[in-house]
Design a protein around this nucleic acid. Sequence first.
DNA 1: TGGCTTATTGACTGACCAGTCAATCCATCC
DNA 2: GGATGGATTGACTGGTCAGTCAATAAGCCA
Lengths: 208, 208
Amino acid sequence: MSSTRAKAVPDRRRAILDAAVRVFARQGFHACRVSDIADEAGVAYGLLYHYFPSKEEVLNTLFLERWGVMLEMIREVDRKPVPVREKLAAIASFIVDSYRHDPDLMKVIIVEVTRAANSFGQTHLGQIREAYRMIGEIVTKAQQEGVFKADIDAEFAAMTFYGAIEQVLTGWIFGLLPQGEDDLERAKQMVVETVCGGLEVGPGTLPA
Amino acid sequence: MSSTRAKAVPDRRRAILDAAVRVFARQGFHACRVSDIADEAGVAYGLLYHYFPSKEEVLNTLFLERWGVMLEMIREVDRKPVPVREKLAAIASFIVDSYRHDPDLMKVIIVEVTRAANSFGQTHLGQIREAYRMIGEIVTKAQQEGVFKADIDAEFAAMTFYGAIEQVLTGWIFGLLPQGEDDLERAKQMVVETVCGGLEVGPGTLPA
DNA sequence: TGGCTTATTGACTGACCAGTCAATCCATCC
DNA sequence: GGATGGATTGACTGGTCAGTCAATAAGCCA
């Protein structure tokens, strides 16, 4: 309706969410004030409470929006009849590209939710867990097909994979790792290469 | 002096630090009050400020104490003339054993400092970085010796390795992963096996 | 014993900030 | 044009809590 006309009613709700991303990324959720978000959005203090019941709910919304997209993506990838390596590459790719597209948002999600398992992580543990579960399932299938070693717990493997990616993102977020265009691409490959290389059955396997 | 006599003067400073670990682990740094720490330590509110200039400094102290031990340990491991795999295994072992010995402390360090790179992580980025740097150096040496593939950035490899371990700990901390005695031991092996397996030069290597 | 220093106590204060609310604005429709 | 309801405003309130401080206890030396 309102979106049929260009430059129609400005979407304040969206403006608030976008401003919150910038403010949370810059100052952190706990350190920022609600008025900082309102100011950044160019909106009166009280308007935030017209659209959201609390400061916390703003963060929840940001997280759920993005995490939902990722879960959907993993689900789709899992359905495709392609080799594990390709599936994991698709997941790594999606996450790295998400960072490329909106580093601030990814910073907020990782720093304030995913890695803050007290406070917010607790609230969203179910969602987060779902991602691990699906990755674990991909690993399990690969084991059943004999592509991955069977003696490794799939859940641990999933954590290892996801943890490796998230740590690389964290490295970028805090300027510990170079993040040129090619660094991002190479990181995707590297993580997949490393983890798959370690998990695959093959001549590389060293028996104890 | 005072420690020569058993049951001598009770060390309130230590009591406060230990209580803080429990309280931070249970409630989180931001969510707990200074009075919670004092109560847990069985000590008056003001005494905390006799020993520490601020609540924050209590956390800093806890982190620096433990992180210092880890850095020293990595330094020593690095000096030994043993294969990479053994060096990385020693590091993984140390971290997992630290968790076994004091899960609350590790939870606090990971959740409140290492993964909270806003706020406290920022303060200690130097210390944290130092760990990555040293692990990266171990990888570099392995590459020079021809044991690890040379086309992988050592810094990325270090992040991958450390990230994988930390994620497994996080899994334990939040009850996402089983943590029986044997699970801990297998996790050590698995992380090292996986990461080394992926990084090592060898017949397992798939050329692009 | 008296006098000095350090440890310990807990009531109090000052700042801060999330969330409320009554008032105003504005689009829309009859 | 005026009535209705959602959008928008920002001053204000209530509660919370980190950190202060003046008072008291406990150790210690001469």
